[in-house]
Write a protein that binds this DNA or RNA. Structure first.
Length: 303
DNA sequence: ATCCAGGAACTGT
DNA sequence: ACAGTTCATGGA
């Protein structure tokens, strides 16, 4: 299913028709505090851990294709393949958005945003630990501070390489975090709760009780959500956030999300943020595509 | 100062 | 099952 040509020194990914690389970059570029990727003049830089090696790659748009290069020299063929798979999943390129666009073009709430950001895809978080930790960090604090906490977390416990004077980071492994104490994280302004949640999730994954593979095997949205919510620190919002960003399930719907509420308020020109009941009413026509509806509405917050 | 932030657990009914 | 309270900290 992945449409990727391995040229040896570089990769060429052929995205599906409904894809706009610039829209995706616009979304990625919204977070100027982001530490896990960098955007320079239309080129995206990212460091990826493949087995035990750290691979730096760049991606940019060349003739409607995604060109992937390796500034430090091309890794092995298998590693290049892994990088291609990562990008394919990261940009959710396996998704056929036709049905969503059909549905959204007739929806009063979504009509304008899907037209405006056409070709945008859910730029996910393929790593389950990263997806869950990022969601927990973001719980009930402003995004600016959330990025600050994430930066400290990554710079303290992640790995990095330096290339042409810039440092590139990969997210910490759950094995590293599983061995920390709450105090280790409180030093970086994590609250006691957040520290407990993050370490608990790491331990759950280190023990093998929680993994992306196990969740995928459930192959059922409700089961996956229930399973995630049984973990301390993961409520409905965090579960849906991870399900939409990591497992690419389009029925995931973080309906309590404040960003979604603000987006709806703006898009609809409301006086106040809508209630959950009102959002449920707006969303009756989004069935099967709640995650994409949410994502496009999030995108509208960054204009 | 004051309100709130891409919530969740806990407590009491 | 449901509603109210507490947690924690920085941004605007």
């Amino acid at each position: 299913m992945m449409n990727c040509i391995n040229h040896g020194s570089y990769l060429e990914i052929i995205p599906p028709e409904e894809f706009n690389f610039d829209e995706c970059l616009a979304f990625l570029g919204r977070a100027n505090h982001e530490i896990l990727h960098q955007l320079k003049e239309g080129t995206l830089y990212k460091l990826l851990k493949v087995n035990d090696s750290l691979i730096l790659f760049t991606i940019r748009n060349v003739n409607k294709r995604i060109k992937v290069e390796f500034p430090e020299g091309a890794p092995s063929s298998i590693e290049r393949e892994k990088v291609g798979e990562y990008i394919w999943e990261w940009f959710d390129l396996g998704q056929d958005l036709d049905e969503f666009y059909q549905l959204a073009s007739k929806d009063l709430v979504l009509k304008d945003v899907v037209q405006k950001y056409h070709g945008l895809r859910i730029i996910g978080i393929p790593d389950l630990f990263e997806a869950l930790v990022w969601a927990v960090i973001g719980q009930q604090i402003n995004l600016t501070f959330a990025y600050t906490l994430k930066k400290r977390f990554v710079e303290q416990f992640g790995k990095s390489i330096t290339f042409e004077g810039e440092q590139y980071w990969v997210f910490p492994s759950f094995n590293t975090i599983a061995n920390l104490t709450v105090e280790d994280l409180k030093k970086f302004q994590f609250s006691t709760r957040k520290a407990e949640y993050v370490i608990g999730i790491a331990q759950e994954m280190a023990s093998g009780k929680l993994s992306k593979k196990l969740l995928i095997e459930k192959n059922d949205y409700d089961e996956v959500k229930k399973s995630l919510m049984s973990i301390r620190g993961i409520g409905a919002w965090t579960a849906d956030y991870a399900i939409m960003n990591c497992l690419h399930v389009n029925t995931a719907f973080p309906i309590a999300d404040v960003g979604l509420h603000n987006a709806l308020k703006n898009v609809l020109g409301l006086e106040n943020k809508p209630t959950i009941e009102e959002i449920e009413a707006y969303a009756v026509g989004w069935k099967g595509w709640q995650a994409y509806a949410t994502y496009y509405l999030w995108r509208s917050l960054y204009d």
